[in-house]
Amino acid sequence: MTSFILNGENISVDAEPDTPILWVLRDHLNKTGTKFGCGAGLCGACTVLLDGQATRSCLLPLATAAGKRIDTIEGLGGDHVVQQAWVENNVPQCGYCQSGQIMSTVALLATNPSPSEDEIKTALAGNICRCGTYPRILKAVKQAASSSFYDASQSPDGSAS
């Protein structure tokens, strides 16, 4: 059994230690909000926060995550300011990459609450969207960042700012 903290709760999983966290979440814990896109850390669909850092869960072995904090899209609660900005801007098309885009955004805003356009583009360059929702993602990130409601305590990584 390997233990880690998932969205604030202690979790123990019986899986091979090399099992990527992506598959621990999806196949062992039935948390399917985190998506499989490339299996090689290239597309960002599987992005989660590992101790607050945006991390590709398809390349993160269970053994490495032992004792650490993992936050996923399910942990944002559904009315997180970033999620609200996503809905208000009608960002998703197919929607498959959006969990990863949102988690990368949450990680960015936790350390840089008012990023420039270039900083947003750089921070999200690891997250591919084939539908081409990038212009709307950009708008939504700016809106979330400018929201007076945004503060680090909204982030799962409240300590990072």
Binding site: T32, T34, T72, E74, G78, Q83, W86, G95, Q98
Partner: peptide, 29 residues
């Protein structure tokens, strides 16, 4: 009229169910 997509919230919260997310009793891969 411009509407909020009916699936916008589900797709922003990880709750939209894609083919890859189908779950059935004792499902194998």
């Amino acid at each position: 009229k411009a509407e909020t997509r009916p699936d916008a919230l589900q797709k922003s919260t990880g709750t939209a169910q894609f083919g890859v997310d189908i779950d059935l009793p004792n499902l194998k891969t």
